[in-house]
Amino acid sequence: MNHFTAFTVAITLGLCATATQARDLGPDEALRLRDAGTIQSFEKLNAAAIGRHPGATVKETELEESYGKHLYQVELRDAKGVEWDLELDAATGEILKDHQDT
């Protein structure tokens, strides 16, 4: 196996491993986690995201599990029409990422 082929295989395996680390959680599982107190309510998580961008509206949300941690993804549109992508720790409500959607 030459170096280029080995490099290509290593990159492909790395991308596949990364892709399998995160999984989307369905509504039933999300509600079970909320009811068990494992994650915060969706209302609290949305309020935390909107608190970062007052006057924004929630466009889309998604709950996923990545590396054993529950992450809440929120897409917002602010009063000026700018779209934002936020990622919160679903257990604590801490904002982990906040960037303008490009």
Score class of each variant (00 low, 15 high):
Gly51Cys: 00
Leu63Cys: 09
Lys97Arg: 15
Asp28Phe: 13
Thr12Lys: 04
Ala47Ser: 05
Val58Asp: 07
Thr92Gly: 07
His3Cys: 02
Phe42Pro: 00
Gly14Lys: 01
Thr102Phe: 14
Gly37Pro: 10
Ala10Met: 03
Gln73Phe: 10
Ala90Phe: 12
Arg77Leu: 09
Glu62Tyr: 09
Asp98Ser: 12
Leu63Tyr: 11
Ala49Cys: 03
Glu75Phe: 12
Val58Lys: 04
Gly14Cys: 03
Asp78Met: 05
Arg34Pro: 04
Met1Val: 07
Gln100Pro: 00
Thr57Tyr: 10
Ala6Trp: 10
Leu96Gln: 06
Gly14Asp: 01
Gln40Ala: 04
Thr61Arg: 08
Asp24Thr: 14
Gln21Glu: 13
Asn2Trp: 06
Leu33Pro: 00
Glu62Phe: 15
Ala56Arg: 00
Arg77Ile: 14
Thr12Ile: 14
Thr38Gln: 04
Leu31Cys: 13
Leu33Glu: 00
Ile50Asp: 05
Thr38Ala: 08
Ala56Trp: 05
Ala48Trp: 08
Ala22Pro: 01
Thr8Glu: 10
Ala10Lys: 00
Thr38Phe: 07
Arg34Ser: 13
Trp84Gln: 00
Asp78Cys: 04
Asn46His: 03
Lys59Trp: 09
Glu62His: 08
Asp35Thr: 12
Phe7Asn: 01
Val58Gly: 04
Lys97Ser: 11
Lys44Phe: 13
Glu87Cys: 10
Ala56Gln: 00
Leu25Cys: 02
Ala22Thr: 12
Gly26Ser: 08
Thr20Asn: 13
Glu65Trp: 09
Phe4His: 09
Lys44Thr: 11
Asp98Arg: 06
Gly26Asn: 13
Gln21Thr: 13
Gly14Phe: 11
Ala6His: 09
Ala36Pro: 05
Ala91Leu: 06
Ala48Gly: 03
Leu63Asp: 03
Glu65Gly: 08
Gln21Ser: 11
Ala17Gly: 05
Leu71Ile: 15
Glu87Asp: 08
Thr57Ile: 15
Lys59Gln: 08
Glu83Lys: 02
Gly81Ser: 02
Gly55Trp: 07
Gly93Tyr: 13
Leu88Tyr: 10
Leu63Gln: 08
Gly26Pro: 04
Gly93Pro: 05
Ala36Asp: 14
Leu33Asn: 00
Thr20Gly: 11
Ala79Val: 10
Leu71Phe: 11
Ala56Gly: 02
Leu76Val: 05
Ser41Lys: 01
Asp101Thr: 04
Val74Arg: 00
Ile11Ala: 15
Leu76Gly: 00
Gln100Lys: 08
Asp78Arg: 01
Ile11Asp: 09
Leu71Tyr: 09
Met1Tyr: 01
Met1Gln: 00
Arg32Phe: 14
Gly26Thr: 11
Leu63Thr: 11
Lys80Phe: 15
Cys16Lys: 06
Asp24Met: 13
Gly68Trp: 14
Ile50Gln: 09
Pro54Tyr: 04
Leu25Glu: 02
Glu94Asp: 10
Gly51His: 00
Gly14Tyr: 08
Ala56Tyr: 03
Gly93Asn: 06
Leu86Trp: 05
His3Val: 11
Glu64Tyr: 14
Ala10Cys: 05
Ala19Glu: 04
Ala10Thr: 06
Leu31Arg: 15
His3Met: 06
Leu15Val: 15
Ala91Pro: 02
Val82Ser: 04
Glu64Cys: 11
